[in-house]
Design a binder for these strands. Structure first.
Lengths: 130, 130
DNA sequence: ATATAATATGTTATATTATAACAAAAATTG
DNA sequence: CAATTTTTGTTATAATATAACATATTATAT
């Protein structure tokens, strides 16, 4: 299953994973969800809350997999994982200010990746000078 | 519906909303989802992606309701909405660095609110000196 | 005012995502 | 190896969300 996720640039839903893994003997959703739970606990996979979907971790050799963020292209579906201490520390500081003890952070930015931005420019011709 | 959400400190699922509004004539999920969509578009309600639930906006008089964050207490379910320019600008700056054009941000911090932290202290007796 | 088009609503059915419950199998432990 | 715990397989079902279509309402133009 991890192989399948690693091959994908986009995220996959649990049921898509199930369908892809049927040839390998997966038959029921629970098999997928249980496998995903383990992979997530071990830091090999992340869940995208805003998409109800799953994606392989981009740096599984790291330590803390609870403080990770994602840029999600709404046009092509590509996911860019990033791990920014400045952003995370900023959030933590803000939480301290309201005396909230953070345990995990869901940070997902929806928008348009550079490739799709370029595709739109090309398609529409862009804006010409004067 | 907005009244119902405004009265709640916790978030409500669409189906909980449906049940609560049955006396007022709501009968089908779509009625709820359609009403929620409108309220969200108008900035009166937010959707919590990590909970599949909905909550009234804390400052509906504001302008931009796409850049808002939530501290979610996993113990009592209370939700604290906050709107921090520093955090948001930090994220935007980071997105610029990878040439990603952000359109909306999902930022939800799961953890424990100050009241529940205090409750735990009281319950367990806390740590005594020397 | 009224025909037309556009938008909104009600309703049924269904799609999608996720977990409960329990039996059987495998692994762990004494 | 017996007892216990943990994992796995399977069926059923819960929880979340949308499609499709009919009907009603509102807006627009004549």
């Amino acid at each position: 299953m991890l192989n399948l996720l690693l091959q994908e640039k986009k995220s996959l839903s649990a049921y898509t994973i199930l369908d892809r893994l049927r040839p390998q003997g997966f038959r029921a959703p629970l098999q997928v969800y249980r496998a995903l739970d383990k992979l997530i606990k071990r830091g090999f996979v992340h869940r995208l809350a805003s998409m109800n979907a799953f994606i392989a971790c981009s740096h599984p050799w790291g330590e803390d997999h609870t403080l990770v963020a994602f840029a999600i292209c709404k046009t092509c579906g590509s996911i860019t994982e990033f791990d920014d201490e400045a952003v995370i520390n900023n959030i933590k500081k803000r939480m301290q200010a309201i005396l909230f003890r953070p345990q995990s952070i869901t940070l997902e930015i929806q928008g348009m990746c550079i490739l799709c931005q370029h595709a739109v420019q090309t398609y529409s011709g862009g804006r010409r000078p004067g």
